[in-house]
Each structure stands twice: as structure tokens, then as C-alpha cells.
């Protein structure tokens, strides 16, 4: 061959197109051809190790690559290599590493957890991604919440209670806020009076005469606000009714209103239309008990836990 090349120039395939167009027939480079053979050998080895060729209704499961994991009965079990088995084993290995922390977390009462420096730092580091993945979409990163929609978790104001037990209950079971609309039960003047009274409760400027009228309505059976918000208007955490006497606003954006008329309109809007939102999803199906306990401590530690 080498001689041919020397004597007669490069070999051609012998095809001639359009009278003169010819095609060289050079041999493939050795590195390429051996590389090609190597991929064939690799494929055969691969078939043997990993699940590969289909046979009837099953397939060649592969040898050598068996994966051992613990089954639901607590016994070790092996299965041929597949990504699900691999994931199960990896999850179990990771769980073993985290087990001392989670066991301690599960066994200690809430108030002891934050006093244990090692566990407390575990809660902070493991809670951060959990909070970011599951809670931050509504309560925002940092837990600051969003006025008009999602309560602030970093302050000391709690709708359903800020104790460890209440936070745990809220995460586990979820919540659903509700206030009936008063558009039909009350006329516009009554709603304005009530809104003035509600504003006056937290020290906002409001027409005194209207507020006095609103106060009577608040405690009357016509509007019956006291039934949920309490005689003192401080709300009831067992049903999640708001404390109207503090300066914390979730649904009516009073702090964001430009003037007194705007503030009044914000409160009127809530009384008129009521609320059927404030839905906190339930997490018991998505997170396990340990993760919920960890998040409970994490949220409690955000600043305002009671």
C-alpha cells in the first residue's frame, strides 16, 4: 500500500463522477479504528454489568452491579443495579448520617432544642433549604411575609399562635382563613362606621363620631364582630381571627395607604368582601414528622416565637 502511494499517488475508490470527480480511499487512522473497536468491547462489558438487552417480557438484569438496601421490614435486600435502588440506598446512607441529629431532635422537648448549640446549628443549616423550598414562595425568604396575602413569620405577632405546638400544628395540618362578607348584612354607612372604629382601635386617625357608632355596631348582634374578634377586639388565636388593636395589618394594607381616606377604604374593602383566603397548605403528606419538627423550631427561631 505504502508503495502504491509512493508510485502512483493516493488510491481512489474507483468511482468517477462528472467525468473527472474522484474520491480518495485513504485508510482510517489507526487510533480511530482501535478506538472504535474499544467502544464495541466497552458496550459488551456494559451489557454484562448493567440492565440491558430485552428478553421477552423482561430484560437482562446485569451482573456484578447488585445494590443492597434495607426494605420496609428492616431486612437487607439486593436488587440488580437501577437508579431507583441506587437512590434508595443513598437515601438510607444519608439518613444514617443524619440519624443522630434527627433522633436527638425527636427526643428533646422543643425548648431544649434551641438551647443545645450543636442541635441548634443543625436546625439552622438544615432548616434553611427546607424553608427555601417549601415556605419561601409565600412567606418570602427570611419569613417577612407579604402584606395582603401571607403573614410575617419573623415578628412576634401570630394569627394562630406562636408557641412551638401551634406552629407545628399550623405546618402539619395547614390553615384556612375565613371572614364572612358583610356587603349584604350592612349598608355602606354602617361599614364606614365600623371601619372607622377598627382604625381607631390601633391609634389611627378616624372620625370620632363614626368610630363611636362603629363601636356600638361592633358589639351589636347586627354585625356581631365581637363574636370572632372578641369583646376586646384582640382576636382569638384558636380560630385565627385578627387582633384589631395592634398596628400589624395583614389583609388591609393600612400602612401602605397614602392618606386617611385610603386607610378607610382598605378596611372597608375587607369588611365588605370578607376573606376566603389565607390558605396555608397542609404539609403532613409532603414532609415527614422530623422535617416538620425541624421547621417548627426554625420558624420559631426566626425571631418571634413565643
Amino acid at each position: 500500500m505504502a508503495e502504491n502511494v509512493q508510485n502512483q499517488g493516493p488510491q481512489t475508490t474507483g468511482h468517477v463522477w462528472d467525468d473527472t470527480l474522484q474520491e480518495y480511499n485513504n485508510p482510517l487512522p489507526a487510533w480511530w479504528i482501535y478506538g472504535f473497536y474499544a467502544t464495541i468491547v466497552f458496550a459488551v462489558v456494559y451489557w454484562l454489568i448493567y440492565p440491558s438487552w430485552p428478553i421477552g417480557k423482561g430484560f437482562l438484569p446485569g451482573v456484578f452491579g447488585n445494590i443492597t438496601y434495607t426494605n420496609a421490614e428492616g431486612q437487607n435486600e439486593s436488587w440488580h443495579w437501577n437508579t431507583r435502588a441506587k437512590l434508595l440506598r443513598e437515601t438510607q446512607e444519608a439518613a444514617v448520617m443524619q440519624k443522630p441529629y434527627f433522633d436527638k431532635l425527636a427526643s428533646l422537648p422543643f425548648d431544649k432544642i434551641s438551647k443545645d448549640p450543636e442541635l441548634s446549628s443543625f436546625v439552622t443549616s438544615a432548616g434553611k433549604p427546607l424553608f427555601a423550598d417549601n415556605c419561601a414562595a409565600c412567606h418570602q425568604s427570611g419569613g417577612g411575609g407579604k402584606i395582603g396575602s401571607y403573614p410575617n413569620l419573623a415578628d412576634d405577632n401570630w394569627i394562630y399562635g406562636g408557641s412551638y405546638e401551634k406552629i407545628q400544628e399550623t405546618i402539619t395540618k395547614g390553615r384556612h382563613g375565613y371572614m364572612p362578607p358583610f356587603a349584604e348584612a350592612l349598608d355602606a354607612g354602617q361599614i364606614k362606621a365600623l371601619a372607622s372604629y377598627v382604625l381607631s382601635l390601633s391609634g389611627n386617625h378616624a372620625d370620632a363620631a363614626l368610630a363611636a357608632q362603629g363601636k356600638d355596631l361592633f358589639h351589636s348582634n347586627t354585625a356581631a364582630c365581637f363574636y370572632c374578634h372578641g369583646d376586646d377586639a384582640k382576636g382569638r388565636q384558636d380560630i385565627g381571627s385578627a387582633n384589631l388593636t395592634d398596628k400589624v395589618w395583614l389583609w388591609a394594607n393600612v400602612p401602605g395607604a397614602a392618606d386617611d381616606a385610603g386607610k378607610l377604604a382598605e378596611v372597608e374593602k375587607v369588611i365588605t368582601g370578607g376573606l376566603s383566603k389565607g390558605v396555608m397548605p397542609t404539609w403532613e403528606g409532603r414532609l415527614n414528622q422530623e422535617q416538620i419538627k425541624l421547621l417548627t423550631v426554625y420558624v420559631h427561631e426566626l425571631g418571634g416565637g413565643k
Binding site: A137, C138, K146, S149, V279, M280
Partner: peptide, 17 residues
């Protein structure tokens, strides 16, 4: 994972949440 209301807000303007 999220409430219906969150989805409404998020579809109208994702950056709001």
C-alpha cells in the same frame, strides 16, 4: 404545595410572590 390564591397571584405577576 401552594394555595389557589398564590397561583392566581403568581400567574398574574410571578415577581409579586
Amino acid at each position: 404545595k401552594y394555595s389557589n390564591e398564590w397561583h392566581v397571584q403568581h400567574l398574574i405577576q410571578p415577581t409579586s410572590v
